[in-house]
């Protein structure tokens, strides 16, 4: 029997497979497709302080091997998420919940993370630093090591639960960002968020997305994500949740060999509602074929 359990900052996951924030809602929708208790954990929809409608439509565009989204963090706000969405998920699901938090100011991150930390339903906090900072001319928090350090410090000061920073790949040097998180006291790192891209409608001669640009995800980004996980693993001694285009059990193994302790599955959930379950079902067989007895031996195994 192959061992598939992994541990993230003391939290045990039956297997390393986690649906990624923004592709799985608050989980309960997927309970109509399969028993979601098979998942290692769930990273729920990115939550902000206030309710957000998000961006105007169209929010989705297809690409070769992937898709662009500009949903714009649509969510009902932290108070409703804690009062209604997570309890609704908890009725169906007993495994770890990762609460993904977004903010447009330092205050917002601190307030939301403190509330998430106090929730009985949340096991781990994942801080999305890809949002623009409204107090710094809209510059993304996640592109500046100093701002990332400040967010990490501020959030860690109000949280008892493990805090993972979810990194943007839209930077020159992801290692410097990862190091800033480590210095700020982060318990772990999630990477990568989507890569910024765009498509143009030939007939209208205008961007397809109403927001002009959007985040690229899907198999097309997998090699980029893998490379960044590899680089960060070499440079920083923190557990990594690897993600970006993961679509199969083999992709999970590859991401772990690059240095990930757990792996998130994003866009694949949207094209195949059974994607995570299929990956989890396939994983033991793939490990057996590779002669792996305990999945933990894969972590960073290619270095």
């Amino acid at each position: 029997m192959v061992k598939t359990a992994v541990t993230l900052s003391g939290i045990r996951l039956d297997n390393p497979v986690i649906p990624a924030s923004g592709t799985f809602g608050f989980g309960y929708e997927f309970a109509q497709w399969y028993d979601i208790n098979c998942l290692g954990a769930i990273s729920v929809k990115g939550t902000t302080r206030e309710p957000r409608f998000g961006n105007p439509a169209p929010r989705i565009a297809e690409t070769e091997g992937g898709m662009l989204n500009a949903v714009g963090l649509q969510n009902p706000g932290i108070d409703q998420v804690l009062a209604e969405e997570l309890p609704r998920l908890r009725e169906l699901y007993t495994k770890p919940i990762i609460h993904n938090i977004s903010g447009f100011s330092m205050d917002e991150y601190v307030e939301c993370c403190a509330k998430a930390d106090a929730s009985p339903h949340t096991d781990l906090i994942e801080v999305n630093v890809s949002c623009p900072n409204v107090h710094h001319g809209g510059m993304s928090f996640g592109t500046d090591p100093n701002m990332v350090y400040d967010v990490t410090r501020a959030v860690k000061a109000v949280c008892k639960k493990p805090v993972y920073l979810k990194l943007s790949p839209n930077v020159t040097d992801i290692v410097s960002i990862a190091k800033a998180c480590a210095e700020g006291g982060a318990d772990g790192l999630s990477l990568i968020n989507t890569l910024m891209g765009m498509r143009i409608d030939l007939k209208r001669r205008a961007p397809i997305l109403a927001n002009t640009t959007g985040g690229l995800s899907g198999p097309a980004v997998f090699p980029v994500a893998l490379r960044m996980v590899w680089q960060v693993y070499e440079a920083v001694d923190l557990p990594i949740i690897g993600m970006g285009g993961v679509s199969s059990a083999e992709d999970v193994v590859e991401m772990m060999l690059a240095g990930a302790t757990a792996v998130q599955v994003g866009a694949a959930n949207l094209t195949d509602p059974m994607a995570c379950k299929t990956i989890i079902d396939d994983l033991p067989g793939v490990l057996e074929r590779l002669g792996v007895q305990d999945i933990n031996e894969l972590i960073g195994g290619a270095h």
Binding site: G22, T23, F24, G25, E29, F30, K45, F53, G54, A57, P58, R59, I60, A61, M67, N69, V71, Q74, I208, N269, L270, T271, P273
Partner: peptide
């Protein structure tokens, strides 16, 4: 009609505003 990601309620890609909410 709207451009959709998943078609089954997961991605929030096709949300519209109505008098009774999103």
């Amino acid at each position: 009609e709207e451009r959709m990601g998943c078609g089954f309620g997961a991605c929030m890609g096709c949300t519209c505003q109505t008098k009774y909410g999103n």
